Each structure stands twice: as C-alpha cells, then as structure tokens.
Amino acid sequence: MTDITTCLGRPSIMWGRMPYPHSGENLGTGNRCGHDPLKPEFHLFNEPDWSASIPQVMRKLIEAVKGYYYSPLHILPSLGNLNGRRNKSGDPRKNRSEARAAEVLVMRAILYFTDYASLRVGTPKADGQFIARSCVELARVAGLLKDKKTPDEPDEPSERFWRAFRRLRKAGAFDVHLQYVEKPDGSKRARPAIKRLNENFLVALGAVSFEALKKFRTHCSNELKKLRRGYKEKFPRESDAEKARSGLRRAQGEDGVITFAVGTRRAKTVNYDDAKAEYASEIRDRHAELLRSNPDLSQPEVARRVMREFPAFDDWLRERQGG
C-alpha cells in the first residue's frame, strides 16, 4: 500500500483498525480508491470487433449512456437517485461517480449484446435457438473482470460489476430470471440468466423516441424472420424434420405423454427476489440457532460468526445451483 504521508501530507488511511488498501490520491473527492470523478474509467471498455457495423439506433443508445454519468438526475433519476436521499438543500442527491462509471460500462456492454426484436440480452440463431449472454461475457466487454491470482483461473465478474448490475436491475433497466438445469444425479448447474431490457429505460436515455424504437424493433424482427426463412430454405430436411418431431411430441403432450429430445435438459428458472429472500431466511435461521446454542455470545459476535460462515449471495446461489 502506498504511504500517502509523503505524497499528500496526510497520515496513512485506516479503515477501522486495518490499513486501507488504496493510496487515496483523491481524498478530497470522497473516492479513496483512486477513482477521479473528472476522468471516468470509460477506457476500460472493450469495444467488440463488430462495433463499427452496428445500426444507427443502437449506436445512439450506446453513446447516450455516457450522458448519464454527467447528468444522472436529468437523464435517469430512477438510477441517479437510487439511494433515495436528498441534500441539505432539499435537492435529490445523485449516486457516487464511481458507481455511475461502472453502471455506464455495464449498460453499454448489455446494449451491444441485446436482441432488439425481443429485448433479450443474447444472440438469436437462424435455426430458432437463442444464446443468452452470461455476466462473464458482459463483464469482459465492460472491462470489469475480477483480478486473477493465477493465469489459469477462470474469468469472473468483479464485485464492482455485480454492484453495478444489481443497481441497474433495481433501477428498472432490465428484468432477470435465473436459470438452472437439474442433472441426473440430482445436483443443479447454473445457466446464463434470462435478461430482458425495459423499453422505458431505453427511451429514458433520450436518444430515441418510442416510435423510433418500435420501428427499429420491427426492422430487427423482420430481419430475423428473413434469416430463419433462409435457413429453412437452405436446410429444408433438417427444418421439416425438427418441425415434425415437435409436432409429434406436442400431440403426445395432449394425451398426457411427456417425452424429451436427445440432448435436451429440463430448464428451470428461479426468481432473483425469491432467491435473495431464501438467502436472508437461511442467515436469520443460522443467527437464531447460534444464539440458542451460545448464550454467552453477544449479538454482534454472533452476527460476525454468521457472516464468516455464509458466502456472498452470488457465490451462495452458484453453489445452490451446482456450478
């Protein structure tokens, strides 16, 4: 840790009884981690190779997100004042600039990977399938991956990414439906969550009108239909065979017979809010259990022990889903 006694004339920063792990060169701004409000970290963003060929409406939306950083309360008050606080003057208090910079990075990544026909975050395929984009992919483009201790560690979103992701969701940017599959041994494995953008959030950016967005979505839908027609014409036997198989299984279902195609898995979704409620319930139950079995411990001591036992919510959820 840099000792700022020599560079700023101030004592080293302490967080409680522990040294603060950052140099604190921006102490006057309230951003001790090194974030400079005048220089948001937009340079972290990794523009996709195909970014130059995106439609004009997409480009307008992606660029408009940056405007939120500088005018959060005018462009997106539902996000800019997510803390719900006011200044002494009575005016709404805007969120911290460090948080806004991360929100811009995450939202830009999401806008690049959105299927505007359905507003789902992912890529539709010509054969009718849909590839949902994972948060790891979004974090990679946003430049918000967790630092690795060793090169062979898998990529994971950083805590800064998850904080921004959760704030965007709370602000109404998108809905999230978590998915998992049950494996033959009964364990569960997570799948990329279904993320669907909110039309109001997109228009609130001020770059396009509802009518313009509707026209663009219709255009995207027509292009997708054209792509799928082309696939069927190019591969008529495969398309017809798959359609016929689906028809047979649909007829079976009407008679109460359920069958599954080879290679398919039963996918289930779990509501994010329900999962968080279950997580909080387990923590409360464990807290009560420790109080009963350790009457000599104080409430703060029990709370610290519980939080040491429980992983962060996202890690807990991954463990519950078997991956």
Rank of each mutant, 00 (worst) to 15 (best):
S12G: 08
S12L: 10
Y20C: 01
P21K: 01
H22M: 09
E25K: 11
R32G: 10
H35F: 15
L38R: 13
L38T: 00
K39G: 00
E41M: 06
H43N: 08
P48A: 05
K60Q: 14
K60T: 02
I62F: 01
S71G: 00
S78W: 11
G80C: 01
K88V: 05
V106I: 04
A109K: 07
I110F: 10
I110D: 12
L111E: 10
T114A: 07
Y116K: 04
V121T: 06
K125G: 03
V141E: 15
L145A: 11
E153Y: 01
P154R: 01
P157L: 03
P157V: 02
R160Y: 13
F161S: 03
F174C: 09
V181P: 03
S187N: 10
K188I: 03
A190L: 08
N198I: 08
F201S: 03
L205G: 06
H219L: 08
R237C: 11
A241P: 10
E242C: 02
S246E: 15
G247W: 15
L248C: 13
R249N: 11
R250W: 14
E254H: 07
G256D: 10
F260R: 15
A267P: 04
D273R: 13
D273E: 13
Y279A: 06
A280T: 03
E282T: 06
I283R: 13
R284F: 05
D285K: 15
L290H: 03
N294E: 13
P295L: 07
S298T: 15
R305F: 15
R305G: 03
M307S: 13
M307E: 15
A312G: 02
L317Q: 07
R318V: 01
